[in-house]
Design a protein around this nucleic acid. Structure first.
Length: 719
DNA sequence: CGTAGAAACTTTTTT
DNA sequence: AGTTTCTACG
């Protein structure tokens, strides 16, 4: 590969990580650069770890000297090293998404914002959106009244963060960007230092991240970007695929290396992925091929309910594990993927029932659990008492007589002094005891090691005691004890960097907790089925993959279909899911699904239809639904009179009773039934109102949308 | 002030 | 369905 800038378009399974790591190793081995002159950026901590692991296996390098990490991790490192020039206290804390939302809510209350007009969530999104574009409040053009208010809030929010010594995720990037932009000496230093900058998953960078990278690149720096436009799945948080084209224009000057050979999946799986993604219009263009055989067809299963789908998956996993004649698969080589975290519950239930060990990634992560956040809040106050978020979180937890009233008074006092809540505490009040507790903790933990410190704080704060007395608190106590272990593990972790060593281990640990949220549950040795969202599966591969919940409204998600370019992003998401599989791919969906406490009737995902029939093998008959609908109707007719419902001898399956209870005279149609319409095609009845000649039904036509139709007029046909 | 139970809200994906 | 926030009462 030539020694200039380069853009590599690397298809799924083409060995992207290998390309990156071997390039770094080659650069170092050939003497072109020392390990300290390399800056390598990834998006996930998982990817960063993977890279470091592979690299240290190839080369005798000290991982501490390597600048390999996520954008946020590296930005944090930079800000810690130059906290003074960045205008941050040495002990500044990082707000994760939850923390940020509570900070926004708190400010919104203090400023008497009308939350019906300006929901905290929307304000949060507004602020992050602007920061990701590289804009401060003063830079945002405020055309209309609404924007003006939002900008005003944005400014107040940033002031609050500054006062409290905290920074949200976007702030880490923006502030480190501004630091280098402003400080020429520092900029020149880093530009001279980093001779090679390598970026993974370049399609996921947002505008600010791209500018951030460019700022690090001096005249002598070579940029090497690897990405795949077909795997761009973070548009919703500001990722700009356009950066690929931009990079091509600005750096690689039209030269693009394409990696199109896939070393992962068998032919049928790859053909399916190619066929699906070809429905997208916005592509740079690329077609994956493999020298492997065609392999198995894709197995398609239609369940009558989400529980039915889950049961099938559990049975099939058991079969794969046993091996059906051949060698059995290990569970870690099998993944169940879903669109949204909420889907994991039903699956977990079925797997638990079948006695299959599983591990769920994402969802509520370790450092995001309430009890752990409480413990962290105490630790954060020890490090930085002006952290009002943390103060409010634990001032009265466990309860110590500081109610809403006292808190309000404190907030007023703090406002008058333009200081922190902590400083506003009157030593003689009940809150004074809390303040004293924190001050004592500061003294008591001064000479303790990090794990000892954590251990001491969870006891002295009364958290352990509190949860021990709680009925269902055992898990929480366990998690608190686990936090001590996490602190111990962190102490020995190579992840601690030179810059971080200048600051206290406690502050380093707290940053780690915010930035990593703790998906470190992975390496626990036991063979377990892997469960995760499609998003978190990116970059991974498995022998067998179950893609579940392939239904209109869920995958593609209804919220995305509305959004600009949303459908294409959903399709890329499906593409990512398919290309995770090496040998076996299952596509499953369900006719009904419980969502927010009510049953939803859905159609098969359009993505399923976009995969050619020749590649698929239906495990359930394609007309299964009609057959079931018929038995469903006859079951309805068998229904006992309503006054018998309390009779325990009469068993009503749940689904049928729902169908019957909502059944009305719709001239033979009922909820859940498949119908066809002359103009809209096939759909499923999801709701009904009125009766006789006035009966109207709501039909979900999938792509054509959901429509209310008058039965007397619409000429619906039972399908 | 603290608690229990009611009411309201969820509404995708994550560093 | 599950979780968070509100409300009423001790």
């Amino acid at each position: 590969m030539p020694d200039g800038h380069a853009l590599v378009l690397a298809g799924a399974g083409s060995g992207k990580t290998r390309v990156l790591t071997t390039r770094i190793a080659w650069l170092i081995q050939s003497g072109r650069v020392t390990p300290g002159g390399v800056l390598a950026v990834t998006f996930t901590n998982k990817a960063a770890r993977e890279m470091v692991t592979r690299l240290t296996a190839m080369l005798p390098v000290n991982p501490r000297g390597l600048w390999i990490g996520t954008f946020h991790g590296l930005a944090n490192r930079l800000l810690r090293a130059h906290h003074q020039e960045s205008g941050l206290p040495r002990e500044f804390q990082i707000l994760d998404t939850q923390d940020q939302l509570s900070a926004v809510k708190r400010l919104s209350k203090a400023l008497n914002i009308d939350e019906d007009r300006f929901a905290p969530r929307d304000l949060q999104r507004f602020i992050n959106g602007q920061k990701e574009e590289g804009l401060r409040a003063r830079d945002v053009p405020a055309g209309d009244e609404v924007t003006r208010k939002q900008v005003e809030f944005f400014a107040a929010y940033d002031e609050q963060c500054q006062r409290e010594g905290v920074a949200d995720f976007a702030e880490l990037l923006l502030r480190s960007y501004e630091l280098l932009k402003r400080n020429e000496i520092l900029r020149q230093h880093y530009q001279a230092r980093f001779r090679y900058i390598l970026v993974d998953e370049f399609q996921d960078t947002n505008r600010l991240q791209y500018r951030w990278l460019k700022l690090f690149a001096g005249a002598e720096t070579r940029l090497f970007a690897v990405g795949d436009d077909d795997q761009s799945i973070y548009g919703f948080r500001g990722a700009n695929v356009g950066n690929l084209a931009e990079f091509e224009k600005e750096y690689s000057k039209g030269k693009v290396v394409r990696l199109e050979q896939n070393y992962r999946s068998q032919g049928n799986i790859l053909d399916a992925a190619n066929a699906l993604i070809s429905n997208n219009t916005q592509r740079l263009g690329k077609n994956l091929w493999t020298s492997e055989g065609q392999g198995d067809p894709l197995r398609v299963f239609e369940g009558e309910s989400d529980a039915d789908e889950a049961r099938f998956i559990a049975e099939e996993v058991s079969a794969l594990r046993r091996g059906e004649g051949g060698a059995g698969m290990r569970l870690v080589d099998i993944a169940v993927l879903y669109r949204s975290n909420a889907q994991s519950r039903v699956l977990e239930h079925a797997l638990f029932g079948a006695g299959i060990p599983y591990r769920v990634y994402g969802g509520l992560r370790f450092f995001e659990r309430a009890e752990v956040k409480h413990a962290l809040a105490y630790l954060r106050l020890v490090a930085n008492p002006s952290d009002d978020n943390s103060f409010l979180r634990v001032a009265n937890f466990p309860p110590r007589g500081i109610g809403a009233r006292s808190v309000e008074q404190l907030q007023d006092a703090a406002k008058r002094n333009a200081g922190s809540l902590f400083d506003a505490v009157d030593t003689k009040s009940k809150a004074g005891n809390f303040k004293k507790l924190i001050e004592e903790l500061q003294i008591e933990t001064k000479d303790l090691s990090l794990p000892e410190m954590v251990e001491h704080v969870i006891h002295r704060s009364g958290l352990i005691e509190h949860f021990k007395n709680e009925r269902e608190g055992a898990d929480r106590v366990e998690n608190l004890e686990e936090l001590v272990n996490a602190a111990a593990a962190f102490g020995q972790d190579d992840a601690r960097t030179e810059a971080e060593e200048e600051i206290s281990p406690l502050v380093a640990f707290l940053s780690h907790a915010a930035l990593e949220a703790g998906d470190h549950q992975a390496a626990e040795g036991q063979d377990a089925l892997q469960m995760m969202t499609v998003h978190s599966a990116k970059g991974l591969e498995f022998n067998a993959v179950f893609m579940s919940g392939l239904e209109e409204g869920l995958f593609p998600h209804e919220q995305s279909v509305m959004a600009k370019d949303g459908l294409e992003e959903e399709r890329r998401l499906a593409y990512v899911a398919i290309t995770r599989a090496r040998k076996r791919l299952y596509l499953t969906f369900a006719q009904t699904r419980m969502l927010h406490g009510q049953t939803r009737y859905s159609l098969a995902s359009r993505f399923l239809e976009e995969i050619p029939e020749g590649l698929k093998k239906w495990l359930t008959p394609r007309f299964a639904r009609q057959q079931r609908t018929m038995s469903f109707e006859s079951a309805g007719r068998r229904q006992a009179p309503a006054d018998n419902r309390d009779n325990k001898d009469t068993y009503f399956p749940k689904k049928e009773s729902i169908g019957y209870a909502r059944d009305r005279d719709m001239s033979g149609f009922r909820i859940g039934q498949n119908v066809t319409h002359a103009k809209f095609g096939s759909g499923v009845i999801v709701d009904a109102e009125g009766d006789g000649g006035d009966a109207r039904v709501q039909v979900n036509f999938g792509k054509q949308g959901v429509k209310w139709l008058a039965v007397a007029v619409a000429k619906l046909q039972a399908a």
